[in-house]
């Protein structure tokens, strides 16, 4: 698929770590039609996103096709220090998955 499935930025400020990420995914709802053939484009969207700080799960998100194409997500959590690893992985409705990690700056 895409070269970089997930881009992650994690930054520590005070006690809170802000994590921002961009995923590369078509996020088809299954309601759109191919303009040339008139056929429905099958649904293809990320269903589940898990963010981990080390082994600790900090965020678990369930999504529908209502999330925009190439989804952006941001959240904050506490208890991390510089140099720790944040891992984000997703699974879509076709069973595909991707995962990436970044160190907290």
């Amino acid at each position: 698929m895409a070269r970089k499935p997930i881009k992650i930025r994690a930054k520590l400020k005070g006690s809170m770590t802000t994590v921002k990420c961009l995923m590369s995914h078509p996020m088809e709802t299954g309601r759109r039609k191919n303009k040339k053939t008139g056929k429905l484009i099958p649904a293809h969207f990320i269903q589940n996103v898990v963010a981990k700080h080390g082994d600790n799960e900090v965020l678990n998100a369930d999504w529908s096709g209502g999330v925009s194409k190439n989804p952006y997500m941001a959240f904050k959590f506490s208890g991390a220090s510089k140099g720790d690893t944040v891992t984000i992985s997703w699974t879509d409705n076709m069973g595909k998955s991707a995962s990436a990690s970044a160190t907290i700056k």
């Binding site: 709802t29 799960e57 209502g66």
Partner: peptide, 13 residues
């Protein structure tokens, strides 16, 4: 998670 702040962003359709 327990240490996660109630502050999330994303982009929706």
């Amino acid at each position: 998670g327990k240490s996660t702040a109630a502050d999330v962003s994303c982009r929706i359709k």
